[in-house]
Amino acid sequence: MKNLTFLMIALLIASSMVVSAFMLKPELLVVAENYLNNKRTVVTKGLAEREVKADRVKIPLNIALRTNNLVETSKELADIKKRIMFYVKEANISESEVSFYALNTLEHVYEYDKGAKYTINLNGTIDTANIQGANKFIASTKAMLAEGINLGIGFNEVSYTFNGLNELKPQMIEESVNNAYKVAKQIAQNSESNIGKIKFANQGLFTISDTLIDDIKLVRVVTTITYYLED
């Protein structure tokens, strides 16, 4: 009698275990499948590129005058400043966008540097959003040179920049995402499956670089997207 009770208890517990195993079986299978599906992905990259017009330009203004007489040359310097301002106005650039920020008079103290006693150096910049005006001003440096004014604008010293990235960002990301999606779809087709949701996406860095034309900039972004593959 005692043995029979133990047997029955054992049977009860055993069968309840079997029942619960059957109950959990489909869930466990789903979990396993989820796990498998989670590993089934395709990673693609999408590129978006756009050429944009620079929206800001910085032109250096460097004037160097060799002289023996500071007082006289300072008058000449004032005249040159006036002439520069004349051309600035001519190019429709606002006067407030011109700054002269430093001045130094250098004594020529070495034997090899004989001739004039001093060089007066005046440094400044034009910083403006008026690209057209700036280009006009640069073109007029030729006329200034004819007047004896040398601004000393060297090769590559005029710097154009683009600052409107934030407005461009959403549409460029969209474009790069679409490009990435196209590739993912192609890959999925080849393996006879479908593209699912985005598992992971990285916007990537936006870069702004120079083109062969001074006032045109290239904005570029590469987005990386990992898609789920579904059957």
């Binding site: 500071l70 300072s74 310097l77 400043k81 430093a102 001045l103 130094n104 008079t105 001093y118």
Partner: peptide, 13 residues
């Protein structure tokens, strides 16, 4: 600063 130069003073910044 050029007004100092105008007085014949050599300045450097």
């Amino acid at each position: 600063l050029d007004s100092l130069v105008k007085e014949g003073i050599s300045v450097k910044v």
